[in-house]
């Protein structure tokens, strides 16, 4: 016999995963198409004219970064939209009247985001095989970086969902914060190539550490020490979990 909390968690995840597959043209397909464009334009058209980076082609260099970008967006969009819609149509109350502990409900939402990220990430990696071959330096690091990053951004999306009170509010952070930070987070270039000022500035961007950790798992090198990457990633995840849980328990933004 399973514990009630586990059954509740399973019910939430099952429902979200069914939803992700049911509307796959909205959840799984768009990032694949976007990445095919990136691979074609940056990797093939432009990349062929660029030098190798640490012995890898430009295409090989950008694939991990692009996958990480996809993971970040998918995780964030999944939780922000599921929570916002649940709040909007009020079926969030189905969870709130239940005896499920708050942390289990938070975990349920977050797992949906993590699952979607992994599905999309896998699809994008498979797609990249049409453009280049992939090397793997450390599978464990790949999975740890992907898991922590998707977990972190699922939490962040959830917090956005608590506060969002219009459809527009769910795309403000992705558009104005996440996309710029990701573009500037070393997806397309090594920060070694930047002037010192911009290099230092880049070090303040948390996404830089995630992209580099993930890339390290494939290519075996990173612009920043790999242990620092995981301290940043782990620290932020713990911090955000605390914040998200506290806000959820208080019901900030969705409870009267």
């Amino acid at each position: 016999m399973h514990s009630p909390a586990l059954i509740g968690y399973y019910t939430m995840v099952r429902k979200d995963v069914f939803r992700i597959f049911r509307i796959w043209t909205q959840t799984l397909l768009p990032p694949v198409i976007t990445n095919v464009l990136y691979f074609t334009i940056f990797g093939t058209f432009i990349g062929s004219q660029l030098q190798e980076i640490n012995g890898h082609s430009y295409m090989q260099f950008i694939v991990p970064g692009l996958v990480m970008m996809t993971i970040i967006t998918s995780a964030y969009m999944n939780t922000v939209s599921t929570f916002y819609f649940a709040k909007f149509i009020k079926n969030i109350e189905e969870l709130l009247v239940s005896p499920m502990p708050s942390w289990v409900i938070v975990a349920g939402f977050v797992t949906g985001g993590v699952v979607r990220s992994f599905l999309v990430g896998t699809l994008v990696i498979l797609t990249s095989l049409f453009f280049t071959h992939i090397v793997v330096a450390n599978v464990l690091i790949i999975f740890a970086a992907a898991f922590l990053t998707s977990f972190l951004f699922s939490l962040a999306g959830l917090v956005n969902g608590f506060f969002a009170n219009s459809f527009d509010a769910i795309s403000i952070i992705p558009t104005f914060v996440l996309t710029p930070l990701t573009y500037l987070g070393g997806v397309f270039y090594s920060i070694e190539a930047l002037p010192p000022f911009f290099k230092t500035l880049s070090l303040l961007n948390p996404i830089l550490y995630m992209v580099n950790a993930f890339r390290y798992g494939f290519l075996g090198f990173s612009d920043v020490p790999i242990d620092v990457c995981f301290y940043v990633l782990g620290g932020l995840t713990v911090l955000f979990f605390g914040i998200t849980l506290a806000l959820f328990i208080k019901g900030t933004g969705f409870k009267n």
């Binding site: 009630p4 509740g8 939430m12 189905e94 239940s98």
Partner: peptide, 25 residues
């Protein structure tokens, strides 16, 4: 007082999922 289920879900799914939230297999 107000309907607070998702109108896009099936009737039995709405009831069965609620059971899950209450920890019932």
């Amino acid at each position: 007082q107000e309907f607070n289920f998702s109108i896009f879900e099936k009737v039995e799914d709405i009831v069965m999922d609620q059971a899950g939230y209450y920890g019932i297999s």
